[in-house]
Simulated assay, not measured.
Amino acid sequence: MARTHLLYLHGFRSSPQSMKARMVAAHVATRHPDAVFWCPQLPPSPRAAMALVAEGIAAWPDGAAMVVIGSSLGGYYASWVAHQRGCASVLLNPAVDPARDLARYIGEQTAWHSPEERFFFRAEYIDELRALDVRGHGPAGPQLLIAAQGDELLDWREMVARYPEARQLVLPGGDHALSNFPELLPQVMAFCDLVG
């Protein structure tokens, strides 16, 4: 059964204006016009971010009809969403332990795609991240992991170890942003298996 709903979750300091998010949105609009696509701007608070997502997809179907794509911190969030909804997930250079990795970013930050926009990453957000950790739970649905060995921010070996049951695509070289995403898009969208 083809999936009807696709959720895209961007990474830390990122936005729906990221290259990957815009490419997926354009692909869905042109190739899968009957599918529902949503890529929300996530607030800095992990608790608020997942509350926003949960409210936005409350009326969406569970399980086989839905898929979530997450990049970096969005990959961590995507695993939580997949666990809640029993759906498939695509994990693009996902954060495995953001409570550990983002502790050094506490304080004022700038938005990647709008440097004039500033936000505060607060100390309490670390505990909010820990509360969303679904490590130790089996996959709620099919998983596709794309991990670049050249990721300059996150360790691809941790990604591979975190998602042992995923279909894994480990890329030699590359970078955290997955600059070669145009080449990867067909595989990502084939896995998503959207209607239309």
Rank of each mutant, 00 (worst) to 15 (best):
S15F: 05
Y125D: 08
L92I: 05
A148F: 02
D101Y: 04
H32A: 11
V195N: 01
E183S: 13
I126F: 02
I57M: 07
P61G: 09
T4M: 07
L178V: 11
A54G: 00
G173F: 02
D62M: 05
F120I: 14
R100H: 11
L129R: 07
Y77I: 14
F121K: 10
W156A: 14
A166F: 06
L42S: 07
R47W: 01
A131K: 00
G11Y: 06
Q149K: 14
L9A: 08
D155Q: 09
G56E: 12
A59V: 09
W80S: 04
E183N: 11
G150S: 10
M159L: 12
S18K: 01
P40W: 04
S89Y: 00
R22V: 13
V96F: 00
S114V: 10
C39T: 07
S45N: 10
L42E: 02
L153C: 09
G11H: 00
L132F: 03
P16M: 13
P182R: 13
P142N: 04
P186S: 14
G141A: 05
E116L: 09
F181Y: 15
A131D: 12
S15E: 08
Q41F: 08
D151L: 13
I146S: 05
L92S: 03
L42W: 03
Q168D: 13
Q168I: 01
S14A: 15
L9R: 05
G141K: 00
D101P: 00
R157Y: 04
F37S: 11
G86A: 11
R167G: 08
A25Q: 13
A51C: 03
Q109F: 00
P94C: 05
R130A: 09
G138T: 09
A111C: 12
A64W: 07
Q187G: 12
T4V: 11
K20H: 01
L42D: 08
V90H: 08
L42Y: 01
M189K: 03
A48W: 01
G74K: 00
L194E: 07
L129Y: 03
F12Y: 09
T4F: 01
A140C: 04
P44C: 10
R118H: 15
D97R: 14
V53W: 02
V90L: 13
G70W: 05
Y76K: 12
I106L: 12
A59Q: 15
E165F: 02
M50Q: 13
W156R: 08
R118Y: 02
L73E: 10
T110V: 14
C87T: 09
A65K: 13
H176V: 14
F191K: 14
W80Y: 15
V28S: 05
D62K: 06
D101K: 09
L185W: 04
L185K: 08
E165N: 05
E158K: 04
L9I: 10
W156P: 12
E108W: 04
Y76A: 05
N93Y: 07
R47G: 03
H113I: 12
V36P: 00
Q143E: 15
P46S: 08
I57V: 15
I126A: 08
R3M: 13
S71Y: 06
C87E: 08
Y163R: 02
D34L: 15
F120E: 15
S72G: 12
A54N: 13
